[in-house]
């Protein structure tokens, strides 16, 4: 009888531990590579191929304008901006691949039109419904 009670108590404790939610502080970040850049800014092309501009200003007043795809500027150990340079795809994948891989898909937009002042869709919009459903289930 006592064994059964002990087993029940152990089971209850196990269940309680399993239900407890971990909300502890996140672990400390890894140490930086010695002599490596302190920061990197890399310009990328938009999903539609357009390449914009970023203006990077260092703490010592130095300034770099990035306006070409895959060009980057770094902050060196002296806390100055390096000259901008083209980053190879291999370097981008090796150094920053995990972050890039996590980037979400662009939102899908569908515009539906109704006939006059009715609640009936136009035939073109009706045809879009299948595509909307397919996109929804693919991204769900």
């Amino acid at each position: 009888m006592r064994t059964a009670q002990l087993a029940l108590l152990m089971l209850a404790l196990l269940l309680f531990a399993a239900c407890a939610k971990e909300v502890g502080p996140p672990p400390a970040a890894e140490a930086p590579a010695p002599n490596g850049p302190l920061a990197t800014v890399l310009l990328l092309a938009d999903p539609d191929g357009h390449v914009g501009t970023v203006v990077v200003t260092g703490r010592k007043g130095d300034l770099t304008v990035l306006d070409k795809e895959a060009y980057a500027v770094q902050v060196d150990q002296d806390k100055r901006l390096t000259k901008q340079f083209q980053m190879s795809k291999a370097d981008i994948d090796r150094q920053l691949g995990q972050t890039l891989k996590a980037f979400p898909e662009a939102p899908a937009t569908f515009i539906l039109y109704f006939k006059g002042k009715t609640t009936s869709l136009t035939s073109e919009s009706t045809k879009l419904l299948a595509a909307i459903g397919k996109t929804f289930w693919e991204r769900k």
Partner: peptide
């Protein structure tokens, strides 16, 4: 635009 920033700890 689209760009990426990386900052060492």
């Amino acid at each position: 635009t689209k760009f990426l920033i990386s900052v060492e700890p």
